[in-house]
Simulated assay, not measured.
Amino acid sequence: METTETRSVVSEFLGTLLLVFFAVGSAVLAGEYIGTFGIALTFGFTMLALAYALGPVSGSHINPAVTLGMLLAHRITVRTAVEYWIAQMLGGVIGAALLFLLAKQVPGLKTSEAFGTNGWGDRSAVHINLGGAFLAEVVLTFLLVFVVLAVTHKVAVIGFDGLPIGLALATVHLIGIPLTGTSVNPARSFGPALFAGGAALTQLWLFLLAPLIGGALAAVVHQLTHPPQEPKVVADERAAEPSPGAAGREGPASGEGHAIP
């Protein structure tokens, strides 16, 4: 891979690792102290910080569902998407491994079949059934990915783009934690489930599939609600074509011109 591609892939790996370690860690290590609201804010704040730190490098997807949305919106290539997916899943596993190592240093802390994982039935705070869990994950992921597509410029997160993304992630967790524990991110679910085992693994398929469906739907709807983004390029071609009555005049200096609206 080229240097730029390497940096992007490493950023996706690191971002997912940090999201799992800190945000999922807030549920595993501090959930009884900070509650649902605190966990939701931790996810939102962590995403906000990573958006500013890694957004200019990779777009700070750190979520396979977001990457799928970007792919379907024709903002990234298939090769980039595959590289991001691999980096995100590996990042989720390593982040969960570090969190598991830390959790084992806390006497009496239960990790088996828990460990910040997602679930339905008796693994849901409100005992939501399978169909309800699937619908919740699709709709919650739809909101997150739709916001990401709507506020980002092409792939990069610039300016204040990170703020609505962080707020959206916090919002879906406020709603989703009592329902399924909130996945909306296959990489976030995959790593912790590997270490929790048991029902966390047998129910994992839903939290891999439903977020991807939600991300794909968000890309389709975004194309209906927002005009396609055209690349902002210097109007060299326009400058090269003499306008009527422009004979004998100098064209604009190199690099001047207006962006195509």
Rank of each mutant, 00 (worst) to 15 (best):
E2L: 03
T3G: 05
E5S: 14
V10G: 06
S11P: 06
F13L: 11
G15E: 06
L18A: 07
F21R: 10
A27W: 08
V28C: 10
G31N: 12
G31V: 10
E32K: 13
G35K: 07
L41Q: 10
M47T: 09
A49M: 10
L50G: 06
P56R: 13
S60F: 03
I62Y: 01
I62N: 02
N63D: 10
M70H: 04
R75Y: 05
R79A: 14
R79T: 15
T80H: 09
A81V: 04
W85F: 11
A87Y: 05
G91P: 03
V93F: 01
A96G: 05
A96S: 13
L102A: 13
K104Y: 05
T111E: 09
N118F: 00
W120A: 05
W120G: 02
R123L: 05
R123S: 06
V126S: 03
L130E: 03
G132Q: 10
L135A: 15
A136H: 02
V139L: 12
F146S: 08
K154Q: 09
K154M: 08
A156S: 13
V157F: 12
I158H: 12
G159A: 08
F160C: 01
D161T: 07
L163M: 03
I165A: 01
G166Y: 00
L167I: 14
T171A: 09
H173C: 06
I175H: 03
I175R: 02
S183H: 00
R188L: 01
L201G: 07
L201S: 06
T202M: 06
T202A: 03
Q203I: 03
L204Q: 10
L208M: 11
L209Y: 08
G214E: 05
L217P: 04
L217M: 11
A219I: 06
Q223H: 11
Q223A: 13
L224D: 15
L224M: 12
T225A: 15
H226E: 14
P228H: 15
E230R: 14
E230G: 10
D236F: 11
R238G: 09
E241T: 14
P244N: 12
P244C: 07
G245L: 08
G248D: 10
P252V: 07
E256R: 08
G257N: 09
P261H: 15
P261V: 10
